[in-house]
Write a protein that binds this DNA or RNA. Structure first.
Length: 220
DNA sequence: GACCAGGCACATC
DNA sequence: GATGTGCATGGT
């Protein structure tokens, strides 16, 4: 086993021991996961929850209901999640894709092979790498590792990737060094977000961080 | 009142 | 292909 692989697994074990299971994604249905993945782009999850609650209260959390909702009404309801005009359009483009390609059915969409579906999702307006991979992993249960701002910040601070590593570089760091396991990818990303929220914001709080101290050259 | 949060598309060089 | 900018609310 390579040194990288040992590091990656050791960090997972540390986080898992410190935080325990995270029960991700925070959403009731695969469809809600997709909506949340778009709404949470560059946005605090608390604000996303308000927007999702609004949609639930209006009984709009289904592909058909959202398809039949006007852009302006949708924008008004998701307002708390920020960038609401842009995100309303992004939600609509995802819904259009779902109906055009998969009869409005997430379970049909999920039957597509991973790489083919990923490629198609990336062609949907408003869906980039992180949103696509969140949908693939947490809504379609495909084995793909989600990289977010926390992942990049934490791993570059600890010199486990370069500061200018791109999305695929970091994703490969995990996927080449871990077994191809949906449950593991699910839990690992969730633990990274937990670590990020609690200890590794832009101004880090290293004192009680499970990764230990202010020394950002991890010695495990 | 500044700074930040689980990105992405687009313009410009 | 790299770099900069707009999008926007709500919490600290």
């Amino acid at each position: 086993m390579s040194a990288n692989s040992r590091f990656i697994r050791r960090i997972y074990n540390l986080l898992n021991k410190s935080f325990g299971p995270q029960y991700w994604w925070p959403g009731d249905t695969p469809f809600e996961v997709c909506i949340g993945a778009i709404l949470t782009q560059n946005t605090n999850w608390k604000n996303v929850e308000k927007a999702i609650t609004n949609l639930k209260n209006e009984h709009l959390l289904s592909p058909i209901a959202l398809r039949d909702t006007s852009l302006s009404e949708l924008a008004g309801l998701i307002r708390p999640a920020g960038y609401y005009n842009i995100k309303a359009r992004r939600l609509k483009s995802f819904i259009s894709f779902l109906f055009d390609e998969h009869e409005g059915s997430l379970s049909k969409m999920s039957k597509q092979p991973l790489e083919e579906l990923r490629h198609k999702l990336l062609n949907v307006h408003g869906i980039g790498p992180e949103t696509a991979d969140s949908i693939l992993l947490y809504a379609c249960y495909k084995p793909i590792f989600v990289v977010d701002a926390y992942t990049k910040r934490i791993f570059s601070r600890h010199k486990l990737c370069e500061e200018d590593s791109d999305y695929r570089d970091i994703q490969n760091l995990f996927m080449k060094n871990l077994p191809n396991d949906v449950k593991l990818f699910n839990e690992y990303h969730a633990l990274i977000v937990k670590l990020g929220k609690d200890y590794c914001k832009k101004k880090p709080n290293c004192l009680k961080c499970p990764l230990g101290g202010k020394q950002w050259n991890l010695k495990l």
